[in-house]
């Protein structure tokens, strides 16, 4: 079965999921570009990436299952991986930012005391 003769009950939800996921990812990236300071810029990409990747991979699973005429769920590997690692990256980066801003404030305090 090629992609041209997939039935409509696969292409309709897959296309809707693709559009929703792409819009979520785009909104997350625009938020990262436009927001004012680092702690505000932190959360749109991690939220948009997780949700957008989930939607896009669900659509990919639907399409490859339709193409192979059997359930193909190996895309769930990427979903699980992104969902578990994205918060870890966000948390470590946030701690690094707090640490760095604290170090800078301390340095300024020392310079002021001198």
């Amino acid at each position: 079965m090629t992609i041209a003769d997939l039935p409509w009950w696969i292409t309709l939800p897959a296309g809707l999921l693709l559009i929703v996921g792409a819009l979520l990812t785009l909104v997350g990236s625009i938020g990262m570009l436009r927001l004012s300071h680092f702690y505000a810029r932190m959360h749109p990409p991690s939220m948009g990436n997780t949700l957008g990747t989930g939607c896009v991979l669900l659509a990919s699973m639907l399409i490859s299952s339709g193409l192979a005429s059997r359930p193909v769920i190996h895309e769930i590997l990427i979903t699980v991986f992104i969902v578990t690692t994205s918060p870890m990256t966000a948390m470590l980066l946030m701690r690094a930012a707090v640490h760095r801003s604290g170090a800078r404030a301390q340095r300024q305090l020392v310079m002021r005391q001198d």
Binding site: L6, A14, G15, A22, L26, I30, M32, L33, R41, P45
Partner: peptide
Amino acid sequence: MTDFLDFAVNFAQLCFALAMTCAAIRL
């Protein structure tokens, strides 16, 4: 119906390219 899927894939690629541009500007 497959036209809709083509449109969705094109639209998603456009969105991801724009998102990559935003990320590159921030980078």
